[in-house]
Structures are given as C-alpha cells and as structure tokens.
Design a protein around this nucleic acid. Structure first.
Length: 343
DNA sequence: AAGGCCGCCAACCGCCCTGGT
DNA sequence: GACCAGGGCGGTTGGCGGCCT
C-alpha cells in the first residue's frame, strides 16, 4: 500500500511564491499561528500544499531568520561542524543562530564544498584527496559522537519535557532538565554538563558512557555502524526515567549555574576535553579550544587515536590552517576573533 | 546584441521518524 | 503491534540572473 500524498495536489499551485501569497501566509500565522500545516492553506486562502507553506515559512518568512552573506565566523563553523556531523544540516543549523538548514545546505553545496575541493580536501570525508589522513579526524570523531548524542538527547528531553508539562499534575515534579540556551547562544555540549560522575570510555566508536551510582545504569553508546548516531539506550525501559531524569532533576535542584556546571566535566580524561568546555561559548569556540588543546597535547604525548599518525600534528595543523586560511583569504579582518593557537 | 553557459538558491520530492489511535 | 497523519530532513531540481563568447 503506497503512502498517501501529503495533500491533494490537484489544482494546487507550485513554484515561486508571490508577494501576495507571502502576505496571506504571514497574516494568517501572525493571527492564528500555523497550527496544522495541512489545514493551513485552506484557512489562509492559499492554493498551496501545507508542506509548501511550512517550507516557505521556515525557510523564508519566519521573522527570526538571518539572511544575506555568511560571515567568516559562520563559514568556519559550518566547515567544522560538517567535519563533525556530516550532512546533518538541521544539526548544523542549531549551531548557527538564525540560519536555516536549507540555507546552510545551499551555501555548503555552492561555496564551501568547492573551496575544500580546490584545497585538495575531500568535502565529504574532510581528508586530503591523496588519501593522507587529516590529523584531527580521530579527536573530531569523538567530538562528533558527543555532539550527536547531545543533539539526540536534547530532542528527547525537550519532547519529554513538553509531554510532562502538558500532563503535569499538582503532584508531578516539573522537569526542565536542561536550560536550553537562547537562540543567540548556541549550546555547547550542554548535555554533557549534567553528566557529572559519569565514567567515560572513549576508546572506540562503540564506546559507552555509563552513569555510576544508579541501580539502573544508563549508557550512551554509539551505534554499531560508523554513523556516529548515538542513542540513549537501556535494557530497562524504566531506567532512563529513573536515572537520567532523576539525575537531571538533582542537577537542577543543586542550582548550579551553567557556567559553573560547564566546568564540571568529571570523568573525562581526554585532553581535548579537559578544561575546554565552557557554557555560553559557541560550539565554534569550543572547537577552537579543543583543537588548541589537541595541538598542545599532541606535542608531548600520544595522540588521541591511532588514526592520528606520526605526522598528526602537522596534518592537523595544515588541515585546519588550510581551512582557516581558505576562509581567511581576502576576507579575514585584522582582528580575527578566534586565531587558533596552534597556527 | 544574442545565445550559451554557469552559479545560486528557493522550492519540491520522497523518505523517515514520531506520536496518536 | 499495525496503521495513519503530521512534520522534519536531506537530496535534488528548476528558474533566474549574471557572465562570457
């Protein structure tokens, strides 16, 4: 049985939106909210599919959208996040306030991808096209796993928070486990903050993070593929509720401010991790710090992973200096806000 | 000036996920 | 558990405008 179309397409308009249609859509949403997208077109008097309306709103008409040329900082962030997250445009967009995933995707495909290719870097793998590994790949993989886990858990927690809010009773405990940042301050590994007391094993893509001190342990584990799609998992269906939520509630009740909690990354012994995560800083800042940390640590000790070869330092340095240099080319203002320390 | 080429980007398409029943 | 609707996501397309010959 085939899937029914999202809407009856007979007689519906396609193609570019006119200003009249924009006005209708805007006026309707401002007055009533979007509600059900499927029902919106008829209510708003538009001969459009609901999906088309949603896309037009989220990618163009929404008032909090930033349009126009991407800044140097945004370009750097996109490149770095793409190295971490791949083509997960929505995830990348969460770190670029007021940019839509569609806009970032277009910008990547039309500008950044080509620039990387010109530099001899595979825009998909972020490795040199001659096959030589690029130094930070290993550490970035770990960071990607954390970031993937964070994004996924944030979504889950947000959903659960909504559910609980909707279903809250006088006896229920309000749950707002994480202070979601303002749109203008991208989250910085925020999910990690409550994981005090967690034991971290970052040895492999299948590494897990286990809460200690709970009867029901909760682990964060990588999927068995290399997709770095981590999932909160538990053998006990009650486990997540019992431990994660309880833990988060305790964190919240402790009243630790974000900045202070950000300094509590207990149990993580990775050099790039220690002392690098600061709440309130953008993810890009964290990346710079992490890369800086990696550069320092790789001077005198083993690299973070076997993927980093003997020339890891130079590989990392050349790769990121290449990226930054590429972005900088004819664009970098004299006072670049984040000069990587290893350059 | 005209036609062809190319880059950009808004919009579409189809798949997937999630929540409700 | 199965089915369905709604919405999100990423890949792709098509139209437009600028540049080149």
């Amino acid at each position: 049985m085939g899937r029914s179309p999202c809407c009856d397409k007979v007689g519906l308009k396609k193609g570019p939106w006119t200003s009249e249609e924009d006005e209708k859509l805007l006026a309707h949403i401002e007055e009533h909210g979007h509600g059900s997208w499927r029902a919106l077109p008829s209510k708003a008097g538009l001969q459009r599919c609901g999906k088309s309306c949603r896309l037009r709103w989220t990618n163009y008409l929404r008032p909090d959208i930033k349009r126009g040329k991407f800044s140097l900082q945004e370009e750097q962030t996109i490149i770095q996040l793409h190295a971490l997250l791949g083509n997960r445009w929505s995830a990348i967009a969460t770190h670029l306030s007021r940019r839509t995933d569609n806009e970032i995707k277009n910008y990547w495909n039309t500008h950044l991808k080509k620039r990387l290719a010109k530099m001899g870097i595979d825009p998909v793998t972020h490795k040199a096209t001659n096959g030589a590994p690029v130094g930070t790949a290993a550490s970035l993989n770990h960071m990607a796993q954390w970031e993937s886990a964070r994004l996924e858990a944030e979504g889950r927690l947000a959903r659960e928070s909504r559910m609980r809010t909707a279903a809250s009773t006088p006896t229920s405990i309000p749950l707002h486990p994480i202070n979601l940042p303002e749109p203008t301050t991208p989250p910085c590994l925020g999910m990690l903050q409550p994981w005090q007391g967690a034991k971290l094993d970052l040895e492999s893509p299948t590494s897990t993070l286990t809460f200690i001190g709970n009867n029901n342990s909760v682990s964060l584990g990588a999927s068995e593929s290399n997709s770095a799609m981590w999932k909160l998992r538990s053998d006990d269906p009650e486990c997540e509720e019992n431990s994660v939520h309880k833990f988060l509630r305790e964190q919240q009740m402790q009243g630790l401010e974000g900045e202070e909690r950000g300094r509590h990354i207990i149990g993580c012994e990775e050099p790039w991790f220690q002392g690098t995560v600061g709440v309130g800083a953008g993810f890009t800042d964290m990346l710079h710090d992490a890369l800086d940390c990696w550069g320092e640590s790789s001077n005198g000790q083993a690299e973070l992973s076997g993927q980093v070869s003997g020339d890891g330092e130079s590989g990392s340095s050349s790769y990121w200096s290449g990226i930054l240099g590429m972005v900088v080319t004819s664009e970098l203002p004299p006072s670049h806000p984040h000069p990587p320390a290893f350059l």
